[in-house]
Simulated scan of single mutants.
Amino acid sequence: MTARVHVDLLLSEDGRRPAAELSRRLNVSPASVSVAVNALVKHGYVRREREREPEQRRDIYVVDDEAWYHSIVISARQTLESAQTAMAAAETLGPDTPVGQRLTEVGTFLERVVEDLRESADRWRTLLT
């Protein structure tokens, strides 16, 4: 369902659709759309906007030009948290123990990959705008 909502937004002319339209177009319940959109928002692929018309209030879901950049930044932040957790665990278990050494290596690897990923995303961000 998440992929269906994402693709439908990507295929819209302006990258925007209200929740009710997504529900109608995909022939699914509003609750299904809500769950899917929450996952997409969490990972940075979509943002939620409130449209306030005099008679109604509705959510509009938007895929913008920088959605892919934001997704990479969020993923990098989550991976960095994993790296920091591994490093902290290595310290707790002892950096000279086999487990501590393995966790230190994993943490260091993830930190460096995240650094490269962030630098690359920043360098190529202009391609999205």
Rank of each mutant, 00 (worst) to 15 (best):
M1S: 13
M1C: 12
R4V: 07
D8L: 09
L10G: 01
S12C: 02
E13Q: 09
E13A: 06
D14W: 00
G15E: 00
R16Q: 10
R16T: 08
A19P: 05
A20P: 03
A20S: 12
E21W: 15
L22R: 03
R25F: 07
N27H: 13
N27Q: 12
P30C: 06
A31R: 10
K42T: 11
K42S: 13
H43I: 07
G44R: 01
G44Q: 02
Y45G: 01
R47E: 05
R50K: 14
R52H: 12
R52N: 14
R52M: 06
P54V: 11
E55A: 14
E55V: 11
Q56H: 13
I60L: 11
V62A: 00
V63F: 00
D65E: 13
A67K: 00
H70V: 09
I74H: 01
I74M: 01
R77Q: 06
Q78R: 07
L80S: 05
A83I: 02
Q84W: 09
T85A: 13
A86D: 06
A88T: 10
A88H: 03
A89L: 10
T97K: 08
V99T: 13
G100L: 00
G100T: 10
E105C: 08
T108V: 04
F109N: 09
V113G: 02
E115V: 08
L117Y: 03
L117R: 12
E119T: 12
T126M: 11
T129F: 05
